[in-house]
Amino acid sequence: MTDPIAPQILIVDDARDIREPLAQYLRKQGFRTRLAAHAAEAREVLAEATIHLVVLDIMMPGEDGLSLCRWLVAHDGPPVLLLTAMADETDRIVGLELGADDYLVKPFNPRELLARVRAILRRAPPEIAAPPSARRGFAGWVHDPDALTVAHADGRCAELTSAENRLLGIFLDQPRTVLSRATLLDLSAGREAKAYDRAIDNQVSRLRRKIEADPKHPQILVTEWGGGYRLAADVEGAP
Score class of each variant (00 low, 15 high):
residue 77 G to P: 10
residue 60 M to K: 02
residue 51 I to S: 03
residue 91 D to N: 14
residue 57 D to F: 01
residue 78 P to Q: 10
residue 41 E to S: 13
residue 49 A to I: 02
residue 50 T to Q: 06
residue 82 L to N: 14
residue 53 L to A: 01
residue 51 I to R: 05
residue 81 L to W: 10
residue 62 G to E: 11
residue 64 D to Y: 00
residue 43 R to H: 00
residue 87 A to M: 14
residue 72 L to V: 08
residue 49 A to K: 06
residue 76 D to K: 13
residue 78 P to D: 13
residue 67 S to Y: 00
residue 48 E to P: 00
residue 62 G to H: 00
residue 76 D to T: 10
residue 82 L to F: 02
residue 55 V to K: 02
residue 85 A to W: 07
residue 79 P to F: 01
residue 83 L to Q: 15
residue 77 G to W: 03
residue 51 I to P: 03
residue 61 P to I: 10
residue 63 E to N: 08
residue 50 T to L: 10
residue 82 L to C: 11
residue 82 L to Q: 09
residue 53 L to G: 02
residue 91 D to H: 14
residue 71 W to S: 13
residue 79 P to S: 06
residue 79 P to R: 07
residue 70 R to M: 01
residue 51 I to M: 12
residue 79 P to C: 11
residue 54 V to Y: 01
residue 64 D to Q: 01
residue 60 M to N: 12
residue 38 H to R: 08
residue 86 M to A: 15
residue 55 V to G: 04
residue 42 A to Q: 08
residue 46 L to M: 08
residue 82 L to W: 04
residue 71 W to E: 15
residue 60 M to T: 04
residue 39 A to G: 07
residue 89 E to C: 05
residue 64 D to H: 05
residue 65 G to V: 02
residue 80 V to T: 12
residue 85 A to G: 15
residue 45 V to W: 02
residue 92 R to T: 12
residue 65 G to N: 04
residue 40 A to D: 14
residue 69 C to G: 07
residue 90 T to V: 12
residue 68 L to W: 03
residue 58 I to Y: 08
residue 64 D to S: 07
residue 63 E to T: 08
residue 59 M to G: 07
residue 91 D to E: 15
residue 93 I to W: 02
residue 88 D to H: 13
residue 86 M to N: 14
residue 90 T to W: 10
residue 91 D to G: 09
residue 79 P to Y: 09
residue 57 D to W: 00
residue 83 L to S: 11
residue 82 L to I: 13
residue 92 R to H: 06
residue 52 H to K: 02
residue 38 H to M: 07
residue 59 M to R: 13
residue 78 P to N: 10
residue 55 V to I: 13
residue 87 A to F: 03
residue 64 D to V: 01
residue 79 P to M: 12
residue 38 H to A: 03
residue 41 E to D: 14
residue 58 I to G: 10
residue 74 A to D: 15
residue 66 L to N: 04
residue 66 L to T: 03
residue 46 L to F: 06
residue 42 A to W: 03
residue 74 A to H: 10
residue 40 A to E: 15
residue 66 L to R: 04
residue 60 M to S: 07
residue 88 D to F: 01
residue 60 M to D: 14
residue 63 E to M: 15
residue 71 W to F: 00
residue 56 L to W: 06
residue 43 R to K: 05
residue 46 L to D: 09
residue 76 D to W: 00
residue 74 A to V: 06
residue 89 E to F: 03
residue 80 V to Y: 04
residue 55 V to S: 11
residue 73 V to F: 00
residue 50 T to R: 11
residue 84 T to H: 07
residue 38 H to S: 11
residue 57 D to E: 13
residue 68 L to T: 04
residue 64 D to K: 01
residue 46 L to T: 09
residue 54 V to G: 03
residue 82 L to T: 10
residue 75 H to Q: 10
residue 66 L to M: 11
residue 43 R to N: 10
residue 43 R to Y: 01
residue 72 L to G: 12
residue 41 E to K: 11
residue 87 A to N: 14
residue 41 E to A: 14
residue 47 A to F: 00
residue 51 I to D: 12
residue 70 R to H: 13
residue 49 A to S: 13
residue 77 G to T: 07
residue 82 L to Y: 09
residue 74 A to K: 12
residue 83 L to D: 09
residue 60 M to Y: 07
residue 84 T to A: 09
residue 65 G to P: 04
residue 89 E to G: 06
residue 48 E to H: 09
residue 54 V to T: 07
residue 47 A to G: 13
residue 49 A to T: 09
residue 60 M to F: 06
residue 51 I to G: 07
residue 85 A to E: 13
residue 40 A to T: 08
residue 44 E to G: 03
residue 62 G to K: 05
residue 51 I to K: 04
